[in-house]
């Protein structure tokens, strides 16, 4: 029999994590599905389970200037309707899943799963997220691209849990979020795209591009983003073929029961190009 622990406080949760190997379960919308079994029988959980969803101390949304701080047990639904949450993230949350799933699921859970198709993960990349991990000793911060190691694997140590996600917003002029799922809602992304740009007087001040479900992790190429900062929109327009070429080798999707490699790749490139052309049209 597995041990089931419902900690009453963060400290209690961390005590357990310090003592033994626990599977942290938050909203459960992924783990309860993955471990489902014949109805009315025990789920296929193999490890001791730590249920953190009810830790109210981690249910918060705060904003300090351009940094959005999201507690680990905050539901996606709370985020969707919160004034501090930027519109590009709301667009994502709206299409992420149905209301019931949004009420159960959390951003930290989505990040913890580290599925390359995770829509929350995509937004966390887009907004240069920092993951705040905590254990009995203290906290450490890890940038999202260092945190996610590959599909389902992360930098989290077994005695740690996610306490908070910090997202770095900007006064974007134009943002886009595209989820390409099997249907209009309630689906797993075949590919996803998020882009954001801030420009002043025809000069790009900030640009972010994240592409999901087309590689082992979300694609976000900081070097291209850096290269584009400070350039004029006109220069960007001329560089579109080069930019596409820069992303192309990163896009290495798979075939599965939901879609195929060539579709995912083509669509990801189309969405990237459409985003760039939209920016270019603002010249």
């Amino acid at each position: 029999m597995v041990d089931n622990v419902i900690p009453k406080s963060l400290d209690e949760a961390l005590e357990h994590l310090a003592k033994g190997d626990y599977q942290i379960i938050n909203g459960g919308t992924d783990l309860m599905v993955k471990n489902r079994a014949w109805s009315e029988t025990r789920l296929d959980f193999k490890k001791n389970m730590l249920y953190v969803r009810s830790l109210e101390a981690l249910d918060y949304i705060k904003r300090e200037n351009n940094v959005l701080r999201i507690g680990a047990t905050t539901s996606l639904e709370s985020l969707l309707y919160h004034e501090h949450v930027p519109s590009v993230m709301k667009e994502c949350l709206h299409l992420f899943a149905s209301p019931a799933i949004r009420n159960m699921a959390t951003l930290s859970g989505n990040i913890g799963n580290a599925s390359p198709a995770g829509d929350g993960l995509l937004i966390t990349y887009l907004l240069d997220g920092v993951i705040v991990l905590v254990n009995a000793e203290g906290v450490r911060k890890v940038r999202i691209n260092d945190y996610v190691k590959g599909p389902g694997t992360t930098d989290r140590r077994s005695d740690e849990m996610i306490k908070e996600i910090q997202l770095h917003d900007d006064a974007f002029d134009y943002t886009v979020f595209n989820k390409v799922g099997g249907r209009a809602s309630d689906s797993i992304s075949k590919t996803s795209f998020a882009g954001a740009v801030r420009h002043e007087k025809g000069i790009i001040k900030d640009i972010r591009i994240a592409i999901g479900a087309v590689a082992a992790t979300v694609i976000k190429d900081k070097s291209v983003e850096h290269m584009l900062r400070g350039q004029s929109i006109h220069q960007l327009k001329e560089k579109i073929p080069q930019i596409l070429e820069a992303y192309e080798p990163h896009i290495q999707p798979i075939d599965d029961q939901r879609s195929n490699r060539s579709y995912r790749k083509k669509v990801a490139m189309n969405l990237l190009e459409a985003f760039l052309r939209q920016i270019a049209s603002k010249e």
Partner: peptide, 8 residues
């Protein structure tokens, strides 16, 4: 994985 139409 088998996609039937939702309300949306």
């Amino acid at each position: 994985d088998y996609i039937i139409p939702t309300a949306a």
